[in-house]
């Protein structure tokens, strides 16, 4: 079983062609700009969309811990009392309370995946595993990738590379493309912003490069963190001699995560200014001095 918080069909931004993207719950980093914050915690969670509430009162009846009560004619949620048992979400049909995360078997995921099988063939697409961090559920990831391969579906994973190498070695035969995030070269700054140092990441990058497996390196550009010339130059230089590098991609910070609904127990996050288009182009051109193929938000810089 895998803890999955979303399956998205017809993605065009997570790999070549048209893809089905499987979102693994749980991450070992805590990036304050994460646009999938519901993927960070490993457990099932409760998400709120109060504007969808129809005030049926089912959640009040269902809550055994007094976290949701009716006071002064209104429904109120006390997060500090919420034990995330998710009993309320199970009886909420308006979508105001939703469970984030679900245990799924490989067969259940594949039923969804196989619906677009013809489309993968036509578009050169396939399945992408992402998260959260895929490699926190290495066994499930491996089983899922194997099943994709049995059905001759192209595979990709998006990973922060912050996991034991032995787990990567296990899935290597079943992954066609690795999408890896390199957020910063400076380990201290890396730890300060995302919660972990980057030595393991850089080491895994080196090992992955040695395998010759096709990879794409991505850097989400966040103002104040890594949007300076020196950082991008350093990353570009680091990856410039990887023979199997397909391209390097800069991604403009995406604030969409803030509009998905509110987690009852949200991870730490911040809002950032969206880097200006012109600045992104400058960084892409800078990277282009070291790397032949640089993309900016899905578009090749020529």
């Amino acid at each position: 079983m895998g803890n999955i918080f979303d399956i998205e069909r017809f993605s065009t931004k997570d790999g070549q062609g048209i893809r089905t993207v499987i979102f693994f719950k749980g991450c070992n980093m805590c990036c304050p700009w994460c646009h999938n914050p519901e993927g960070i915690h490993r457990d099932f969670e409760l998400m709120l969309n109060p504007q969808l509430c129809i005030d049926c009162g089912s959640c009040v009846k269902a809550c055994k811990n007094g976290a949701i009560v009716r006071e002064d004619g209104q429904r109120r949620l006390y997060p500090q009392k919420c034990i995330q048992c998710l009993a309320c979400a199970k009886v909420c049909y308006s979508g105001a309370l939703k469970q984030v995360g679900k245990n799924m078997t490989v067969e259940e995921v594949m039923r969804e995946v196989l619906q677009d099988r013809v489309l993968y063939e036509k578009s050169g697409g396939g399945v992408t595993l992402t998260g959260g961090e895929v490699m926190l559920q290495p066994e499930f990831a491996k089983q899922l990738l194997m099943s994709c391969k049995e059905h001759r579906i192209s595979t990709a994973i998006e990973t922060n590379l912050n996991a034991p190498w032995r787990d990567f070695a296990e899935i290597l035969p079943y992954v066609d493309v690795f999408y890896v995030d390199i957020k910063h070269i400076d380990s201290e700054k890396h730890k300060e912003w995302v919660g972990v140092p980057n030595e393991l990441i850089i080491e895994n990058l080196r090992r992955l490069a040695e395998t010759g497996r096709t990879m794409v390196v991505r850097t989400p550009i966040v103002q104040g963190f890594n949007d300076d010339d020196d950082t991008i130059t350093a990353i570009a230089k680091l990856i410039s001699d990887i023979p199997s590098l397909s391209y390097y991609e800069l991604l403009t910070y995406n604030p969409l995560g803030n509009s998905k609904g509110t987690l009852v127990n949200p991870p730490e996050s911040r809002s950032f200014e969206i880097p200006k288009r012109e600045r992104m182009r400058q960084l892409a051109e800078l990277a282009g001095k070291y790397i032949t193929r640089v993309r900016l938000d899905g578009k090749l810089k020529r």
């Binding site: 017809f10 065009t12 070549q16 062609g17 048209i18 489309l119 036509k122 578009s123 050169g124 697409g125």
Partner: peptide, 9 residues
């Protein structure tokens, strides 16, 4: 890849 993707669909 937009044209190829729409063509595939």
């Amino acid at each position: 890849e937009a044209i190829e993707n729409i063509a595939a669909v």
